[in-house]
Simulated assay, not measured.
Amino acid sequence: MEETQRKVRLIAHTQLTQEFFDEAGDGFHDDDLNQLASDGQVVALTAVRTCYSANKPTEIVAKEGVKYFGSKASDGGAGTDADRLFRHIFASKHTSTLEHLTFTFAIEGVSRALLAQLTRHRVGFSFSVQSQRYVRMGSDDKIGGFDYVVPDKVKQDHIALAVFERSMELAQEMYDSLRKDGGITAEDARAVLPNATATNLVMTANLTALLSFYSKRKKGRGAQAEITELAEALRREVIDVEPWTDQFFEEV
């Protein structure tokens, strides 16, 4: 049993199939579609233009991609005309077209208190969470006792930290006693575990859902520090693979 550290890692995100990429690239001649747009931008353009174009979804990038990805933004803003189109879509709140971009994260070492807050964001999210029913949290179990997350404000006060750490020790002792001495099953003994107990999960969310989550949980919106830090970590993972989305995280 010990204090744990949070880790957030993007493990998968929207990518084009080779067949679609080959078809989409037909309209680019000597230009390489990879050099002009990310997979996410290609998917976004396909979704957006499907709503307004006479072309079929499989034809849009091949027939319209050079116009959007190969020319400067017609509104005088940064980037290509595709970036201009995405800004227009975002400003007009037609963001259902961005739901086709999905991101899957491994999230490790967050508290059960954070989990309760995180799972309030349900639309556009999927969660698979480490079970306290099947993963035994005893000191003598494989896990070696439950790990926990210490709130920043508790860390800043040595007296509060001592009280906090002692309460973690007592919770572990009570859990162990229920399991060993009382013969209580893990699914019932877990009731004494605190909100600070660390957990791990896999989470998948679409871009629109992530932007909504970030708008509510980013710094300055009154959210608790732990989930604010998670929101920033998720944003960093997304913009690392789809840099064009950063402007939208900044604006929500």
Rank of each mutant, 00 (worst) to 15 (best):
M1L: 13
K7S: 12
V8M: 07
V8A: 04
Q15K: 15
L16P: 00
F21P: 03
D22M: 13
F28W: 06
D30S: 14
D30M: 14
D31V: 15
D31Q: 15
D32V: 13
N34E: 14
N34V: 12
L36N: 03
A37F: 00
A37Q: 03
A37W: 00
A37G: 04
S38K: 01
D39T: 08
T46R: 04
T46P: 00
A47Q: 07
A47N: 07
T50L: 05
T50V: 11
Y52E: 14
N55P: 11
P57I: 07
V61M: 05
V61E: 00
A62W: 05
K63M: 14
K63G: 06
G70M: 08
G76A: 10
A78I: 15
A78L: 15
D81S: 13
A82R: 02
A82N: 05
R84D: 07
F86A: 02
F86W: 00
F86D: 00
F90P: 01
K93C: 09
L98K: 02
H100C: 06
T102A: 15
F103Q: 03
F105L: 11
A106Y: 09
A106W: 04
I107M: 04
E108V: 14
V110H: 02
A113P: 01
A113L: 13
T119Y: 10
T119K: 09
R122W: 14
G124L: 04
G124I: 07
S126C: 10
S128P: 08
V129Y: 04
V129G: 05
Q130P: 06
S131H: 08
Q132G: 07
R136N: 11
D140F: 12
K142H: 15
K142N: 15
I143C: 14
D147K: 10
V149F: 03
V154D: 01
H158Q: 13
A160K: 03
A160N: 04
V163E: 13
V163P: 09
V163G: 12
L170A: 13
A171Q: 01
L178V: 08
D181V: 11
D181C: 07
G182I: 07
I184K: 09
T185I: 10
T185N: 12
T185A: 15
A186E: 08
E187R: 14
E187L: 08
A191W: 11
A191N: 10
N195I: 11
A198R: 00
T199D: 02
V202S: 06
V202M: 09
T204S: 08
T208G: 10
A209W: 00
A209C: 09
S212R: 14
S212T: 15
R217M: 08
K218M: 07
A225Q: 15
I227Y: 03
A231M: 02
A231R: 00
E232Q: 14
V238C: 05
E242V: 08
E250I: 14
